[in-house]
Nucleic acid binder design. Structure first.
Lengths: 98, 98
DNA sequence: TTATCAGCTTTGCAAAACAAAGTGCTTTTA
DNA sequence: TAAAAGCACTTTGTTTTGCAAAGCTGATAA
């Protein structure tokens, strides 16, 4: 019965990134920077750095447009992101059930 | 629908500490340093520092005895540890289900 | 007596986390 | 029209965390 914590994905091994993924996957529509920021109660810089990490890993896609005259950045999970996250959750469950 | 990642317990917000708790809670008997080390595949120092953190938080109890003539350190989750861990898992589930 | 085991502690470095302030651009608002 | 405010960052600087590797202690086995 190997408790291999090493199959947990480091990209998701932090509450902020976990929260970001949970929010994105819980919504069928893209989620904006400000929605994320308020939902997760984070500072701008903190959120920006964590989503940047997820983007760099290829787990979220970023799209920038204008809503009316206001800039609006939204995030969606990529298909690799969805899969990697699911695998992470599976590994978590496995770990927690021995 | 508040995705409050802030209810996650920082003491368990790391794969090693998560693994330690999972192992300890999965076993009805105390678990030795070496069992933990092998099960989780960690170096001495790394394991030592993480269990020290859990001990400092009051989440695991440490007992030192001799088995035959060899020293043997074992770990058990405290009742606060069990409760806190359960709450952490509840918070996790809640987060993951919106 | 040299080596080995258990269980740490120390050292030293690198990466990560975070808050706070700054930035550039646009748009309200007074 | 000048000041304020919103969006989405980036930069700066500090603190915290993680980790491997080496060292250490006290005991035993070879």
């Amino acid at each position: 019965m190997k408790h291999t914590i090493h199959t947990l994905n480091k990209a998701f091994d932090h509450r902020v990134r976990l929260g970001v993924m949970a929010v994105l996957l819980g919504q069928s529509d893209p989620v904006s920077f400000n929605e994320l920021k308020e939902t997760l109660d984070l500072t701008d810089g903190n959120l920006a750095s964590h989503v940047a990490a997820l983007e760099k890993a290829g787990y979220v896609q970023v799209s920038k447009q204008f809503v009316g005259k206001k800039p609006n950045t939204t995030y969606t999970p990529s298909s690799e992101g969805k899969q990697a996250f699911q695998e992470h959750l599976n590994a978590l469950e496995k770990l927690l059930r021995g």
